[in-house]
């Protein structure tokens, strides 16, 4: 029994161990690596990633996938910049971007459910369509100047042990906490887990699959939109070429954080751990100085594959899920899909 529990927690333990090793290795190699200042910078720089990853966690928990997240963040960032450029107050852009992000997410979720389409193809189309829409909105980087943004980046910070935690990091932590509560402590969260664990059983047990699917993708869209606004305010610009490949970072963070790609198992808190690991790797590569930034995406991809493989291996060993005779009528197809 203990062995079972242990094997189920193995990915999370591995993730925590990797983070520890990375931090220790960084501290040994570089002075000032493990400092509060670096931590708060990291949290600030990766705030938008973590916010988007919270939404993606819900999608993957529900057994889906969202490849559109990078384009969605870039699109809403551009939308926010564009609105500010036309004289809007930055805060006023937040509800607009959130509403549009949620609506676009809901539309994708609706297509997935109504026409029984694979989630990856709908969100892949969304990824390209939204990227093109970003160019349509403004085909050049668009810098924005606003007193509020200057104040945000200069003064809006929480003191943290001699350093300053940027406001966007505080917002991110709040979103993660809220996400954790919604996933763990609400009926909606239970439905999401149920849907990812077994759509057929969930439906038979009275979970409305359509409503839940649409809601999950809408939530992911809203999170990506919030991430977009945060990104625009941090960079004080919108950029149509920005964040290509963010979907890999986000999915990797979710999977490294212990969420099963097949759905039904995982946590929002774990996703934060995944984001931190990817952030520390980025920090190490930056500290190294002479390394190409492309190593970040290579490391991210390798980690994602390693954890996805670990999940499959544990499921295959049966230690994780001894389904007996497939009691819940789970017939593994001979061919992986």
């Amino acid at each position: 029994m203990r062995a079972l529990l242990a094997s189920r927690n193995l990915p999370s333990l591995a993730a925590a161990a990797i983070l520890a090793v990375l931090v220790v290795a960084g501290s040994v190699r570089f002075e000032h690596f493990a400092s509060v200042g670096n931590l708060s910078n990291l949290l600030g720089d990766y705030a938008f990633v973590a916010i988007a990853a919270v939404g993606a966690t819900f999608v993957i928990l529900a057994g889906g996938i969202d490849l559109s997240v990078g384009s969605m963040v870039a699109f809403t960032a551009m939308l926010a910049a564009w609105l500010v450029d036309r004289g809007w107050h930055p805060l006023a852009t937040v509800p607009v971007c959130l509403a549009i992000g949620a609506a676009l997410g809901a539309a994708m979720g609706g297509l997935i459910h109504a026409f029984a389409l694979p989630a990856f193809i709908v969100t892949l189309a969304g990824m390209f369509a939204l990227r093109a829409a970003t160019f349509l909105l403004h085909d050049q980087p668009l810098g924005i100047v606003h007193p509020f943004l200057s104040w945000m980046s200069r003064d809006a910070a929480v003191p943290l042990g001699g350093a300053a935690l940027p406001a966007r990091a505080v917002l991110m932590l709040a979103v993660v906490a809220l996400g954790a509560i919604v996933a763990g402590r609400t009926r909606f969260g239970r439905r999401v887990y149920a849907l990812g664990g077994s759509p057929r059983s969930a439906e038979a047990m009275g979970v409305s699959v359509g409503t839940t699917t649409v809601a999950v993708y809408a939530l992911a869209g809203a999170c990506a939109a919030l991430a977009g606004v945060v990104f625009a305010s941090a960079k004080r610009a919108g950029d149509p070429t920005a964040l290509v490949g963010l979907e890999l970072t986000v999915i990797a963070a979710v999977v490294i954080g212990g969420t099963l790609l097949s759905g039904g198992v995982g946590s929002v808190g774990g996703t934060l751990l995944g984001v931190l690991i990817l952030g520390v790797i980025r920090l190490l590569i930056d500290f190294q100085g002479n390394l190409n930034a492309a190593w970040t995406s290579v490391a991210t991809g390798v980690l994602l594959l390693a954890f996805a493989g670990l999940q499959r291996a544990l499921a295959g060993l049966g230690g994780w899920a001894d389904r007996g005779t497939g009691g819940a009528a789970r017939i593994e197809p001979r061919l992986p899909r």
């Binding site: 490849l67 990856f120 979907e247 999915i251 994602l304 594959l305 493989g309 295959g316 899909r337």
Partner: peptide
């Protein structure tokens, strides 16, 4: 390996 095709190939797409 039994990993979903879009996940495997997404990794190579970015990396």
């Amino acid at each position: 390996g039994g990993v979903q095709p879009f996940v495997v190939t997404l990794v190579l797409m970015v990396a």
